[in-house]
Amino acid sequence: MNVIQKLFRSSLGKKTIMAITGILLFGFVIVHMLGNLQIFLGADVINTYAAFLKSKPALLWVARIGLLVLVGLHIGSAVQLSRQNRAARPIPYGDAKHPGASYASRTMLMSGLIVLAFIIYHLLHFTVAVPGVNLLGASAQLPNGDFLQLKDATGHQDVFRMLVLGFSNVWVSGFYIVGMALLCMHLSHGISSLFQSLGIRQHFCGQCLDRLAMLLAAIIFIGNSSIPIAILLGYGR
């Protein structure tokens, strides 16, 4: 059996795809979070960083397309596996308990799908910046309700103001925090189980891996949620 067949045909192969794309996506989440946290270094820093990214459109688009492919593979495999899993038990238990299984481990598909919905909203909100989704309407600070028209003194896009304005809405911030909580849950199981799927879990202590996953997931949650929370508490306003 060749590699492609092994990866795409068997359940173990699909799990491998999930694990590898999972690691890469997790890497992106970390980098993305570090980028965002520059908001706490002031408007200049984050705006310059954003401008730097925008100045390399080729790289940016390669990264975007790469991410899209990763997400596509991750979700595609997940859906196929879920279909297989559901078919594997046509008659459910009358009394179903799940000894030894964490809540996060049993709800990976659901948490993943909600995170997906969140990502779509997030892209519409800040990347494509569709004016309708920021729930702010037009105001003195935000003519036409369009984030893309915010510019700072140097003429760069004013990402700092975009974030501050964007998170000034409680509902939007709330949704972001919920999204992060689910991502955190998703990662708390995903990070430890990818060691299993890649066949390297036995070299570590299983419990340490579970704890490491919890820790990393918590860092993501705290790091990313700190931005809307800080803004709601008055940072940058």
Binding site: S11, K14, K15, R89, G100, S193
Partner: peptide
Amino acid sequence: VEAMDAEGFGACSVTGSCEA
């Protein structure tokens, strides 16, 4: 593994119930 998939078992989600 091929035989296992062909029999219609599900995939592993590493929930740990089996071990428990």
